[in-house]
Structures are given as C-alpha cells and as structure tokens.
Write a protein that binds this DNA or RNA. Structure first.
Lengths: 192, 192
DNA sequence: GGTTCGATTCTAGCACCGCTAGACAATCGA
DNA sequence: TCGATTGTCTAGCGGTGCTAGAATCGAACC
C-alpha cells in the first residue's frame, strides 16, 4: 500500500525533474540543444525512461508550456493587481507579459512557437492555457470600449503583444524603443 | 568566353530551381519535409550540389524568405494603391498582409519563424527585407497620428499583424472572426 | 581527333537525431 | 526462497545535416 504510494511519489518527482531539466536546458542553450539523449543524461537515466513519462519530445515541450502558462497567468495577475486604474492596469499587464517573454524565451517558445501538441481555442484546451487567457481578459475586458466584445478585444491586444514579443526577440525590432511601442499600443487600443 | 557565360547562366538557373523546389516542397508538406536528401532528389542532383550553392539548409530558407519579402512588398503596395483614403488604404494593407501569410504559410515561416540567417533592423539587412518594411511604412506612416514617429507606429502595427497571422495559423485564435479583429485593429490604431 | 587536365558531380560516410525492441536486473507476493 | 512482475538498460533502426575523397565529365590544346 504505502510502497505503492512511495513509488508513485518518486515517479511524479522524476517527471517533474524531466520537465524542469528540459526547461533549464532550453533556457541555457536553446531548444535545439534539448535532445532526448542529453536530457536523459542530465537526469541520470537512460533515454527510454523519458518515454515512460511522455509520448515523445513534443509532449515534454507541452509540459513546459503548461508550466509557463501558469506562471505567466500569475505574473499578469500580480501586475494587474498592483495597478490602480484600468489604464495603468493595462500598461502594467503589457509590461508583465513582455517581461515574461523576454526573461523566459524558451518557455515562451514552448507555449507559442513550438509544437507542444496542445489544443488551443477548443474544448479540450488544457486548463492553464484557458486560465492564462482569462488572466488577460480580466484586465483587458474593462477597456474594450463600448460595443466591443471583450474576448475579441483581448485577442487583438494579445496578438499585438505576441507580435512585439516575437519580433523583438528575433531581432526584427530594435530593442531600444520597446517601451515606447508599449505606450503607443496601450494608448491607442485601450479605451480608458 | 561564351562557354563561361553559359555555365554561369545554367548555374544560376539551377540555383533558382533549388529555391523554387524548396519553397514548393515546404508549402506542400511543411518545412520539416524539406530535407537535403529530398530536395536533392527533386532537383535530380546529389546532395553536395546544394552545398555548392548555399552554405547549408538555413541559407536556402533565407533565399525563400527574401523571395517572399519581395512578393509581400508587391502585394501590400498593390493593395494600398487600389484603395482611396488613408483609412481604407490601411485596411486593405492589413488584409493583404494577412492574406499573404495565410496563402503562403511556408514562405511566411521562412521570413519570420525560422532561422534563415538573415539580419534584421541592421545595416546589413538585405534590400528586399528593408523594402518590405518600407512598403508598410508608406501607407502606415500617414495614419501614425500627430507627434508619433511613423517608423515606430509602423513597427507596432506590423507587430499586431504578425501576431494575428501567427496566432491564427497556429490555431491559437478562432479563424471565424479574423475579419472583425482586423477591423478593430485598424479602427483603434489608425488615426484617420 | 585524341589527350590532358581542371572543374564538376557523385558515392560513401560521419556524428547526431527521435524513438523502440528485447535483454536484463531488481523487487514484490506467495 | 522462489516465481512473476515491474522497471531499466543496451543496442539498434531509419532518419537528419553536412563533407572528404573518388570518379567523371567537358573544354582546351597539340
């Protein structure tokens, strides 16, 4: 009985170790460096062990993505909570979002650039993903403006943030004026 | 003399064939299917021939990206030219951009999602890329609004379009309301 | 026209990838 | 203590991007 439970605990711990190690390796050297061999080596198990926890590499990426979604939701909510009015709340939210993307590039990639085998905008979308969107909606909905559907507005605002995040990180936009771009975006999109 | 020229022509033709074939294969089956072996097979040459034209696979992706940038610039300009006022011009531009991304997903990926080894927002940025941005700037600059730097405004608008394009295609945004999102974006961002 | 020689192309192979079958070892229940 | 079950590993498959060196071709000269 207790033996069974101990095994399950150990197994769960190992699974967390795999995800944490994959994330760490990805942040350190990029997702290309996250090979099943290297990952297995780091957790000090052989390759097939990974496949007893996950169907394959993409599912590991998906696990990192879910973890990231939860953290991002928390970060966004924390930033929004610390701000006073709707307008400053949106600015804080935008900064928090972009800050998260900049500080966790590999996790952000797992969430939005790589194929983690996750469903989006569907019934079987995992809870953390839906919640991350909900976190955006909470603050953005109140500045959608009259007659504008809050969900639709959130999608547009989110897309803009996503575009800024990815283009900036890919070197497509000069980093120097990132802050001015955020200000312009909020000023125009958010109806105070 | 003429022999040398003929050889150069043939060589240039083969290079175009490589790029066109890579693009075609990528659009048909995705970039994952574009392996050096398959590509070599399709052009009816052996693998090493590819490496006498390009340093590696990433440079082939880069070549497709440049081709795509030129086409996108043309598409955007054509759409803008056919529209009357500044506001309708911007709407037409946005639709043309998203339409290009949707109809040429592999090319769009080569331009913005994959590593084609191209420099951006720098001195050594290839001409087609600078020109594509210029095409956006031409129409977007006139709706930047008072006191807003046209370049900065273009960057923000472009980022929003890029976000919509990528999130939609990745299944992160429901395709049904794409048009409404464009309308909302233009309505808010563009100062008529 | 035959021969030489340089440019061009190919064959074969490297190290690595994601993934898996089957051998082996450790652990549990009787 | 023994047998069965569970867990883990070794070894290997077919694939990847890329390259060294062999082989072939074709242009130029005698």
């Amino acid at each position: 009985m207790s033996v069974q439970e101990r095994k399950e605990r150990e197994r769960a711990a190992r699974e967390r170790l795999i995800v944490a190690t994959a994330r760490e390796l990805a942040e350190q050297q990029g997702w290309d460096a996250v090979t099943t061999r290297r990952l297995a080596d780091r957790i000090e198990y052989s390759q097939p062990v990974l496949y007893s926890h996950f169907r394959g590499k993409r599912e590991i990426i998906g696990a990192v993505a879910l973890q990231g979604a939860a953290e991002m939701a928390a970060a966004v909510r924390a930033a929004a909570l610390a701000a006073a009015g709707p307008r400053t709340r949106v600015t804080a939210l935008a900064r928090a979002y972009l800050d998260f993307a900049e500080r966790n590039p590999a996790v952000y990639d797992a969430m939005f650039q790589l194929d983690g085998g996750l469903a989006f905008a569907a019934e079987d979308t995992p809870e953390p993903l839906k919640d991350a969107f909900a976190a955006l909606l909470e603050s953005l909905g109140e500045v959608a403006g009259d007659g504008v559907h809050p969900g639709l507005f959130t999608e547009v605002f989110w897309a803009a943030l996503h575009g800024l995040a990815t283009l900036t990180r890919a070197g497509r936009l000069p980093p120097a004026e990132a802050e001015r771009r955020v200000e312009l975006l909020v000023e125009r999109l958010a109806m105070a």
